[in-house]
Every structure is written in C-alpha cells, then in structure tokens.
Design a protein around this nucleic acid. Structure first.
Length: 415
RNA sequence: GGAGAGGUGGCCGAGUGGUUGAAGGCGCACGCUUGGAAAGCGUGUAAACGGGAAACUGUUUCGAGGGUUCGAAUCCCUCUCUCUCCGCCA
C-alpha cells in the first residue's frame, strides 16, 4: 500500500514506475475521485463543526436546525463513503514501486544473473528425473494422492518421507542456530485482514483456498506461504526501535490453487497445491531493508552450499516481481533432468509496503514510522528435495545423502 | 454446545446522555534538585484524515458496524474477540 499523500504529490512518477511493472495506472481517474472525495470531506467537516457548536449551546431553539444539519451530513457522508471505497479499491491493488537497483524490464527475460555457485556434476550414465527415481518403490506416489485429493498432490513414503522431514529440520537448525532467526509454529488458517496485510488480498483472491467456518460471517484462508503469518506477527503494533530487527523462521505447509497455471509443470512435484516451505521473515528499520535482503539471501544460499547443490542467483526485473516486493532475488537450483535451473527460493524486500497495509509501526525520534518487511524461502522443501534427489542419484537409482544431512537421516549414506 | 463477565490512550484503570480526547496511576521525554545517581518537584506525553509553506488548525476515533437523540464511551440492535464456569473432545 502506498502513502496516498505521496502518491498524490508524485502522480506521474508513480505512473511511470507502475508502467515498469506492466501496470497501466489511470492517474486521471485517481485524481478525479481523490478530489471529489476531499471536497466531500471538507464539506462534511464544516457542517459537523456547525452542529457541534450548536449542540454546545444546549439551546432548545436550535434543536431543529441541528437536526437539519444532521440530515445534511448523513447525505454527504453516504456519497463520501462511496468515493472513499472507490478510491481504496484503486489504491489497494497497486503494486509496490521497484527499488532503484531493480533492472527495468517486461518479463523474466530482463532478469539479471548475479552469480553461479557450485559445479554441475557430469554423470557417466543416463540420469533419471525425480519422478523416475521415486516411482521405483512407490516412494513418490501420485496415483494414490490423486485418489485421495486429486491432481497436484503427492504421497511420499518411507525414506522419501524421512528425507522431507530431514530437510526441514536441517534448514530450521541452520536458520535458528547459525543465523539467529526465532522459530515460530504458526496457525495455517488466517483471517481476511491478515491476507490483506501482506498483499494476497484483494487482488489475488482466486489463488487462495478459502475456508468456511460454521456460523461465522468471517472468511478464513489457508496460508499460501508462511510469509503471511510471520509478517503479520507484528500487525497493528508499535515496536520500540531497539527491538528491531526481528527475524522469524517457520516450516509450514503452503496451500495454493495455482489458478491459471493449468498445463504448467504437470508432471512431478514442481508445482503442487500443497507443499512444505521453510520461510524467513525480517521486520526491520526501513532504511536497512536492502542490507537485510543481502543477509537473508546468504542465509538461504547457505542451505544449498551445505548440501552441495549447484545454483544461481538472479535479480528479478521490474516486470517479474511479486506484488508487494520492491526488490527480489531468486535462487535457482540445478535440475539435471530438465538441464536447467529452477526457482527454489525467492527473497524480497517489501520496504514499508506491507508495514503500511498491516499498520505495523516502530517508534523513532521522528515519531511513528511503518516498519520494513522482508521475506524469503529458505528453502522450498519440495523443490529442494527434487534437486537433491536428482543431483545425488547413482547409476542404480539410489540417492547419496550429503554429509551435512546424514545426522538428520539416521546416518544413512544412501537411500 | 449451555450459563455468565468483559473489550476505554504505550500499559493499568475511572467514567451510565451534554466543554470527556477522556480523571488517577505506571511508563516515557525534558527541566529543576545532586559531586554523581536514586528519590523528590515541575512540565509535557495518542493516532488517522482534511486545510496550510510553516506556525497552526478542523474533523474523527473509548473492539467493529448500524440505530435512538438536538447531543452517545455512556441507551438499543448485529457482529467480533477475550475471560470464567459447565458439557464435549485431540
């Protein structure tokens, strides 16, 4: 969410920045409605002032007049509410403004490669995809999952289920012990305003799983990422600046409808309706956002380094970034079966965009300011598993366990 | 699910129709005092939105929304959340 005063003042700059994000912002329309809205407010307040002074006199002779004013106010208020609503619906779907570091571009084609890390293994046999590696003992079982839940779900069995759990614990331990994130076990179902706070609503409602509670008028949602709950931990609060930064990590299932991605990544575990993800969130003094983003990125990278999985880091262009982000790094892990890098983490600074939506502030000398927020996967468990399985496969179809992971895998060398 | 109690400022807490944005306290900030600190004393201390270059100023806000009234923190309705007791239950 943007500061409306700032938006009003720098309308054309904003318009240009939105264009970099492929958003056509109708600034004339905004201007028009904003103006009407403010006029109505001014008119209303003038009448309210009149009414107030009449009421203070407690003079019976003025009661009728006061009543008239009340009626007039009510009329104005009604149309003011309408324009306010209209104005809000324009503003709340406007994405964040790209940071100056972000390359301008229409799509992922303009993303900037930052670095490649690790060496891609050359196999002296024909490699298998994770699906082929998993179907062997039914350890990756899509058939049963389809019976239970439909497409884009999976059942993991035996050592593969263990591997998933091992990866989660491995990552959590690193982020908690080495990088001092606070571990959180959050709810997976949240209220509508929480989804609004991080920017999933109102624009991306069709991507969310909505839940209906009996006898409740309130809408609830399954979280599409732990970013939603972790970031909103500070919603509507006023934090002392000395208590910043705050860093949270959680492993949670994530639920996504994947609407609009029919036919995309249909084979395998790349794109599921439900998957585990270890998520990192930082709440910071806004001026430290970009610095914190670098730190967060290196926390996520550490996982791949320790597991010896080759990866590359990409700085997203303005056209490829998510709604709330001002700057985003993607980490992409090497997937041998596809002979390409695939996104395994996305680390974003959101500036004060979410802080403003959530009403999360901190106390500083200049008064109360909105906090900066960052989120990043550290990492997506399903995709990490895919890349680990494929990169560490042996000719016989077994998978070697990386040294650093062994203690989480009951000291197995291979599975 | 049944019965009850309650949501007031950063926090605690008074307040049942009329200068109440809201007593009192805690906390915080500044000043005085002190060799220094503590205590003490004094002063100040909400946010959002509108207008203004600024000083400043207007309006709103006592869980949320609606209603009654010339006037609502205070009365009525709906919703929501928290707490206590009972029931059920992982």
């Amino acid at each position: 969410m943007h500061n409306i005063k700032d938006l009003r003042k720098n309308l054309e700059t904003y318009k240009k920045k939105f264009k970099d994000r492929n958003i056509d912002f109708n600034s004339n329309n905004f201007n028009k409605i904003d103006k009407i809205n403010r006029e109505l407010i001014a008119k209303k307040e003038k009448l309210e002032n009149e009414k107030k002074s009449l009421s203070k006199k407690k003079d019976k002779l003025n009661f009728d007049k006061s009543k008239d004013i009340s009626n007039e106010i009510e009329k104005i208020l009604e149309s003011q509410k309408k324009t306010q609503k209209e104005l809000n619906s324009i503003i709340e779907v406007l994405p964040n403004i790209p940071h100056q570091d972000v390359p301008v571009g229409k799509s992922e084609k303009e993303n900037k490669l930052i670095k490649k890390v690790g060496t891609i293994k050359s196999f002296n046999f024909t490699t298998k995809s994770h699906v082929e590696l998993g179907v062997k003992n039914n350890n990756i079982d899509f058939e049963t999952a389809t019976k239970l839940s439909g497409s884009r779900f999976v059942v993991l069995r035996d050592k593969f289920a263990l591997l998933e759990r091992a990866l989660i614990n491995f990552m959590l331990d690193i982020h908690v012990n080495q990088f001092k994130y606070t571990e959180i076990s959050p709810p997976l179902i949240v209220n509508e305003d929480v989804m609004y706070g991080t920017g999933q609503l109102p624009k991306f409602r069709e991507d969310q799983f909505e839940i209906k509670f009996e006898n409740s008028t309130q809408k609830k949602f399954l979280i599409p990422t732990a970013e939603v709950v972790l970031t909103n931990l500070v919603r509507k609060s006023n934090i002392d600046i000395k208590d910043l930064p705050q860093r949270f990590v959680a492993s949670t299932p994530c639920f996504r409808k994947e609407a609009g991605s029919y036919g995309k990544d249909t084979k395998g575990m790349i794109r599921q309706h439900q998957f585990y993800k270890v998520e990192l969130v930082s709440i910071v003094d806004p001026k430290n956002c970009i610095l914190e983003l670098d730190r967060m990125l290196s926390c996520a990278e550490e996982i791949l380094i320790k597991l010896e999985i080759p990866y590359q880091v990409v700085l997203l262009s303005s056209g490829d970034m998510g709604f709330s982000a001002e700057k985003t790094f993607d980490i992409e892990a090497w997937i041998p079966s596809e002979k390409k890098y695939r996104e395994i983490s996305s680390c974003s600074s959101c500036g004060t965009f979410q802080g403003r939506r959530m009403g999360a502030k901190y106390k500083s000398q200049n008064g109360n300011e909105f906090v900066g927020t960052l989120n990043g996967s550290g990492l997506a468990v399903g995709r990490l598993m895919i890349s680990l399985l494929e990169n560490n496969q042996n000719e016989d179809g077994s998978i070697s366990i990386p040294n650093n992971l062994k203690k989480y895998m009951n000291n197995l060398d291979k599975i």
